[in-house]
Structure formats: C-alpha cells, structure tokens
Amino acid sequence: MSNVLALIEVSHRGEMAASARGLLAAAATLGSPVAVVVSAAPLADDDVAWLGELGAVRVYAALTAAAGTVLVAPAVDALGAAIDAYSPVAVLTANSVDGREAAGRLAVRVGGSVLADVVQVRSDNGTVVARHSVFGGAYTVDSVVEGGLPILTIRQGAIEGQAPSATAAVDEAFLDTPSEGAAVIDGFNDDAVVSARPELRTAATVVSGGRGLGSPENFALVEQLADTLGAAVGASRAAVDAGYVAQTAQVGQTGVSVSPQLYVALGISGAIQHRAGMQTAKTIVAINKDEDAPIFEVADFGIVGDIFTVVPKLIEAVKARSN
C-alpha cells in the first residue's frame, strides 16, 4: 500500500501533539501511515507505542540538535528526507502555526502543492481529494493536486475517529543542522493555565461568551455553564478585545472554527464574522437580551432575556435533571 507521511509535532517538553490522532486517521484513509517525528533525543518506547496505537505503521524518527532551537526548518528537512525514503502519495501536517509553515516550505522545495485547512480526505481511484469548509462553512469545496505531491494541512479537530492500531516499526535518521535561512528559537513561555475543560477545537459542547458579559469577572458565568455541561469555553472577538478572556478562546472568522454537537452563545450578538466560526454546529442555543440580535437567525433555540438571570436558572435546571 502507498505510504502517507504525517508530521507529528512534539512540544519542547517532549509531549506529542493531540493533532496526531486526526492526522494518522486521515493518513490511514489514503494509505499506510508513516509518522514523521523530529526530536533532539531518541523517542521513548511509550511514544512509539502511542503512535502505533493511533495507526502509525512506521515511525520516521529524525534526530537533530536543532529541534527546539531552530524554527520549523528541522521539520521541513525531516519531511524532505522522509519523502526520499518512502516515496509517499501525500504528506499531511496539522493546520497549526508550525504545520502550515512546514507545508508551505516543503511544497516549494519538492515541487508539490498545498491543499490548506482540510476537513476531510478521501482517495478517488488513487487521487487524493481534499475537502475544505469555506467562508465559515457556507461552501464545501473539493480540490486535488495535479502534477506534483499533494501536501495537506489538516484542520485540527475536524477528522473524527481513529485509524486501526498497528505495531509501529521505527526508522531512525540523523539530520544535519539547517545552515541558511532559518529563524532561531530563544525560549518558550507556556500558557500558565492548563484547563481541565475539553479542548475548544474538539469539544462536543462549546459555551461562548460575548460583550454582553460586561466584565472579566462576569465571564465566570460562561465558565460555570461550561463546567455544568462539560463544555469547552469560547468567546467572540468582542469579548477577547475587551480583555474578558484569552485570545486562544476566540471563535470566528479570525479565530478557531468549531463544529460541536451543541454551541451555546451567551451575550453574543452574532456578527457574521462570529457566525463564520460556529454556524456548522449541529445545534445552536443563544441567549441575548436584544431581540433583534442576528445570532437568533441561526439559533435552534433562542431566549430573549438577561443572561445573568437565565443562565444561573439554567445551571440549576440542568443539574436537577441530571441528578
């Protein structure tokens, strides 16, 4: 079966990225998944076993002192070497900050093309077909690469399921230090809060707050409902710009795109730029005091009312029913 490369990102603390599951699942639908991992130290047996469990048939473990000190270039070099070694039919990266830069550089280096922000993949008689969700889900577009290697950046959280598990064989390789044209990493500043809540991009339920919350203190109301529903916390750009919540929670045109089973919008007017990040949710609930808020145009269940009255009652009512 044809090989498909999947670039697995590793944090500077040595943790494998959660995007590995979706990447390997997508790779398995196109061929035989080869996980490409770049690190300064040899991979632990546990990491190899984990990648196998997620479907990696082989692991290309590229070792270089530049991992963690040189930006993105080691990943591009590793993918280039892995292309020589495995002659893949496609290369997959996460649509992450690092992943898409690696994909862009690789396409130029090896004469391929990038299919960006892919939400679904399939093989059509050997041709790799990528599906994109365009303009906030208003359009579904399928695209292919002609004449070169398809390099796909996969939207994080978009691919469901898991590849059949395998026992991964490891091929170790040593990379030279990138010589020219690379940026240098001087340090890492990890986000302080590691939340126990589900990750925004993959959560089944998302509760988001907007400008209607009024203050960073009041934003706790969003978190309380999120915790009652086992949900991730999101926000409109207005709430982020007002400083109620961190930018990583931003849902919309220029933030995270989510497609959960349930999306609850609290105090969010529903500007078209916000809807572009959440309108593919299966069920949408909105609570807003403005009867004419555009969010109600897409809500399956809307309440015109004061979030500070309705949400505490809702929390009690949900708790009462789940007891």
């Binding site: 093309s113 579904t140 399928d142 695209s143 004449g147 290697l149």
Partner: peptide, 9 residues
C-alpha cells in the same frame, strides 16, 4: 510550476 491545485467540486 509542474504542480498546481485544482478545484473539482
């Protein structure tokens, strides 16, 4: 370039 992307649907 030899390679290009094409929208099919």
């Amino acid at each position: 370039g030899v390679s290009r992307t094409v929208v099919v649907a």
